[in-house]
């Protein structure tokens, strides 16, 4: 149980870029599973408003599964608020690319396949050092 990943679900409220059937399918799957999870209305809004809750969501020792959009975007939505996600134990399940069934299965699977871009993977900048 200790290694069971924590689950975070983004509802991507304010745009239709995540298909409704996918995000509702994943949310229904989570609600049926009996698993604990965190659900947020929109990670973009939280990042734009520097919501301190991002630090809470990024904190903790457990591996994390995040049902949202592209891993690169998710990494920097958190990173721009000084709430860096651990790259070695964070898996982002991309609801823009996967079907509802595939995304739900990926979220509820206890195996974590870290897929955030590695820190400094392209360019070394002062910004990366700061965050």
């Amino acid at each position: 149980m200790a290694d069971q990943p924590r689950i975070l679900f983004c509802h991507c409220n304010y745009a239709r870029v995540v298909p409704d059937e996918v995000k509702q399918g994943v949310l229904d799957g989570l609600c049926q599973s009996g698993r604990a999870f965190e659900a947020v209305a929109d990670l973009c809004e939280m990042s734009a408003r520097r919501d301190p809750a991002l630090k809470r969501l990024a904190a903790g020792e457990e591996p994390v599964k995040i049902a949202a959009c592209y891993p690169r975007a998710v990494k920097w939505l958190f990173g721009s608020c000084q709430a860096g996600l651990p790259t070695d134990r964070t898996e982002v399940v991309n609801m823009r690319e996967l079907s509802a069934d595939d995304a739900t299965a990926a979220v509820l699977n206890d195996m974590v396949d870290p897929n955030l871009p590695a820190d400094g993977s392209v360019a070394s900048t002062e910004g990366e050092k700061k965050i």
Partner: peptide, 8 residues
């Protein structure tokens, strides 16, 4: 949603 497993 508090349930089985960890939350933030």
């Amino acid at each position: 949603c508090a349930g089985a497993g960890a939350v933030a």
